[in-house]
Nucleic acid binder design. Structure first.
Length: 492
RNA sequence: GCUACCAUCGUCUAGCGGUUUAGGACAUCGCCCUCUCAAGGCGGAGAUCACGGGUUCAAAUCCCGUUGGUAGCACCA
């Protein structure tokens, strides 16, 4: 059997972390099984669907490299997604409504939304499940004409069997069974002629020959309805896999109030595409040995649907952050530089670095590479290379001007000013020897020499390895900065 | 309310009846390394496997029930 799966978001907002996870599992399954992955935009909610949202979803999918392999045309190099509203224009859904009506599996219902709501209300009061009561299920031709004369427009409802049950085997959940009696005659097509989700979804899954439907657990109660439609049309339903939900730290389904939920926000924060993917893959899926990091193609190679967990997972930002650091460290200096430049452009911060020498930036980033957890950390880590020297007050008071260190610091910095101009070899090794020799000669601890130099040239106590930093800065700049520091704090 | 699903360290998870004094990862704590910050190394603490009852020589693992959590119950998807 050819493996064919889809991600079918509704374009009503940002692409959500939970949505990405669903897309990812479909993608991984398709790649692992050498199948086909499709993107289908379920835009049948005309009130809430927006083009902006569609654009966001497509861009996010591209950024995440969750590329789909097929589209309505065969346009290359990039496929467009399928759009249900476009398919509706082609009369695809109406065709099957007619068949269902013809065969008696569906009927026209003339009740208004208000009337239906009233029914539900009554059922609730009677402690019954709030269902449509089948008022229009068996109207005669004359009754239908009468309603139409009143100007009522009909919706199409599915005629649900009153007895029996629907059972199916879910890859994640195992055997699942629902009583038909609990289901009501749900709407297939709205009064405006637009198919509902449950209907359009079935028609498309069949027509697009989906072998598996991998989606969130929140859809599991729609599945029996959908299977009824498949069967009414004489079609074999796909194999279902319902993924567990992703929860926020308070145990409720992940939502806005848990902080960042949109993929794009993670991109803005400076998370890496592959780190986010790796983290999300581990939410509800694992290997036998609980492997954490999956570089390159190993996620695809290791993935299998039957190792998906059926219990919900709580999203843990601190683990994602750790993982992002791991991915950043796994990349070359060159790659991180390029990723940083892309990120600057994506976040429109070109002004921030426009006066920065790119060669120096590259070197500075490589010095701080292993410290970076998010791309957005980089400016704060390296900006002192480019900006005029500014001092961290704590650094000054603790290292340069404290009672126990101010004298030695003054001596060290003045010695640097005196000797460094003659220092021919400005390699880290030579500079380290220079500093250690100086310490020995002056009878100071290494720290009493290294620390003031660090503060004098960077303005802070934290930073790259001192001698690498000096090399990258260059002799002239180092001397200039030390002179500036001495003038500011010691020559008063 | 009805229905479904779920239940192992704070979090993600391994576990498929005996190899389990329940393993790994994040977070946390301590130590080491060290020119700072990181990274790295080593180690600690942290789970009576939700609870109760079975089945079995043997159960985190199988069955039943209870409780709790989550989701669904639209002319939304």
């Amino acid at each position: 059997m050819a493996i064919r799966v889809r991600f079918a978001p509704s374009p009503t907002g940002d692409l959500h972390i939970g949505g990405v996870r669903t897309a990812l599992f479909n993608y991984l399954f398709a790649k692992k099984e050498k199948g086909t992955f499709i993107l289908r935009i379920e835009d049948t909610d005309e009130a809430r669907s927006t083009e902006a949202s569609t654009g966001i979803i497509i861009n996010a999918m591209k950024w995440l490299k969750l590329n789909w392999d097929e589209g309505p045309g065969n346009e290359l190099p990039e496929y467009a997604p399928y759009y249900q509203m476009k398919r509706k224009e082609q009369g695809i859904y109406q065709k099957y409504i007619d068949i269902l009506l013809e065969k008696g599996y569906a009927y026209k219902c003339y009740c208004t939304p208000e009337e239906v709501e009233k029914m539900r209300e009554q059922a609730r009061l009677a402690k019954q499940p709030p269902k449509y009561n089948g008022h229009c299920a068996n109207l005669t031709k004359q009754q239908q004409e009468e309603y139409e004369k009143q100007g009522r427009t009909a919706v199409i409802r599915f005629r649900m069997p009153k007895e029996g049950k629907i059972e199916f085997d879910d890859i994640v959940r195992g055997h699942v069974s629902f009583e038909n009696a609990l289901l009501d005659d749900f709407v297939l097509m709205k009064a405006n002629g637009v198919p509902t989700y449950n209907f359009a979804c079935v028609i498309d899954d069949h027509l697009m020959q989906m072998s598996h439907v991998i989606r969130g657990d929140d859809h599991i109660s729609n599945t029996p309805r959908q299977i009824h439609i498949f069967k009414a049309l004489g079609w074999e339903p796909p194999i279902f896999a319902h993924l567990s939900m992703i929860l926020g730290s308070d145990g409720a389904r992940l939502s806005k109030r848990h902080g960042h939920t949109s993929v794009l926000e993670y991109r803005k924060e400076g998370y890496l595409q592959d780190a986010l993917i790796n983290y999300l893959a581990l939410l509800g899926w694992s290997t036998e040995d609980s492997q954490q990091l999956f570089f390159g193609n190993s996620l695809i190679e290791n993935f299998s649907l039957d190792r998906c967990n059926s219990s919900p997972a709580t999203f843990d930002p601190s683990k994602l952050l750790w993982m992002n650091g791991e991915y950043i460290r796994s990349k070359s200096d060159e790659e991180i530089y390029n990723l940083f430049i892309d990120w600057i452009e994506y976040t429109n911060q070109q002004d921030l670095i426009k006066d920065w020498d790119k060669d120096l930036l590259k070197k500075a980033i490589s010095l701080e590479h292993e410290k970076v957890k998010l791309l957005k950390d980089i400016p704060g880590l390296v900006d002192f290379f480019f900006k005029e020297l500014s001092f961290d007050e704590q650094a000054v008071s603790k290292v340069l001007l404290s009672e126990t260190k101010k004298d030695s610091s003054k001596i060290v910095l003045n010695e640097c000013l005196r000797r460094l101009p003659n220092q021919q070899d400005f390699s880290p090794e030579a500079l380290e020897k220079f500093a250690r020799d100086l310490a020995t000669e002056l009878g100071f601890s290494n720290g009493k020499v290294f620390h003031p130099i660090r503060v004098a040239i960077s303005g802070r106590t934290q930073g790259p390895s001192l001698f690498h930093m000096m090399e990258v800065m260059g002799k002239d700049e180092v001397l200039k900065r030390i002179q500036f520091t001495v003038d500011k704090y010691f020559n008063v």
